[in-house]
């Protein structure tokens, strides 16, 4: 079946799903979903959207930090998927393929807008002595039952820290720590080697922790330490 025929069948499904009240169908496995989309199965389109639209929106919003941009990314992504499903070769999972399209589209949105890749890493990384020990005590601000306000404030600080993190790093953190993609799939989605992805992920995590730590250590009341995990 050609791309135009697929698009025509998908179009008929979108029309039908609207008039039927858009109930969420049971979601089939990826291979069945791909076969269904290629065959113009009337359930496949709604299944694809049901499975991926919220995830793609969340990822796009996380990368672009802007709801209008995230909406446009969603539109671009699913239009791309429906138009190109015939060309999907199955070299990666359907999800990885969709995430790849989505991260590319979202990163395109932030390129030009985003801040420089020059991040003051040294300011958010811990300092060590020549022997490799922490130079200053490390407060534990992670769990303070009396500091609900601090946790609320940290969410605000985190939002700013995520904005300050370059998009390429933000995408890695979101794919791994929010979407839960395995390392190799996240690397595939971003066109990175696994070591490059791991390096970016670690830097991104340290950056966010550092920014939260800066705030918490000046505004919070650290809990007593000493209980190892």
């Amino acid at each position: 079946m050609g791309i135009r025929q697929s698009a025509r069948r998908i179009l008929s499904r979108l029309t039908a799903s609207k008039s039927a009240g858009a109930q969420s169908p049971a979601v089939p496995a990826d291979d069945l979903l791909v076969a269904g989309l290629r065959a113009g199965d009337p359930e496949a389109v709604e299944s694809l959207l049901a499975r991926y639209e919220a995830r793609i929106y969340r990822l796009a919003l996380g990368i672009t930090r802007n709801s209008a941009d995230a909406e446009e990314v969603c539109q671009d992504v699913f239009l791309n998927v429906f138009r190109n499903i015939e060309g999907f070769e199955g070299k990666s999972s359907l999800g990885t393929w969709i995430y790849r399209i989505a991260t590319n589209a979202a990163l395109m949105k932030v390129r030009g807008k985003s801040r420089s890749l020059e991040v003051p890493w040294d300011e958010v990384l811990p300092r060590f002595s020549q022997e490799g020990s922490h130079l200053t005590p490390v407060p534990d601000w992670s769990k303070d039952p009396e500091a609900a306000l601090l946790q609320t404030e940290l969410r605000t600080v985190l939002g700013q820290a995520l904005e300050d993190l370059p998009g390429e790093y933000r995408a890695v953190v979101l794919l791994r720590d929010v979407e839960g993609l395995p390392t190799d799939e996240a690397a595939n989605a971003l066109g990175l080697t696994v070591p490059a992805l791991k390096a970016r992920l670690h830097r991104g995590r340290l950056f966010l922790r550092g920014r939260l730590g800066e705030y918490a250590e000046t505004h919070g009341r650290p809990t007593p330490k000493g209980t190892a995990e």
Binding site: D140, R155, G159, R209, K225, E229
Partner: peptide, 24 residues
């Protein structure tokens, strides 16, 4: 204890990121 605190705050940051990104 410093590294234990570092680990906890590192994991705490991951948890906050997950929570912050859970927009419907």
């Amino acid at each position: 204890t410093d590294c234990t605190a570092f680990l906890r705050t590192f994991k705490g940051t991951q948890a906050l990121v997950r929570e912050a990104a859970c927009e419907e």
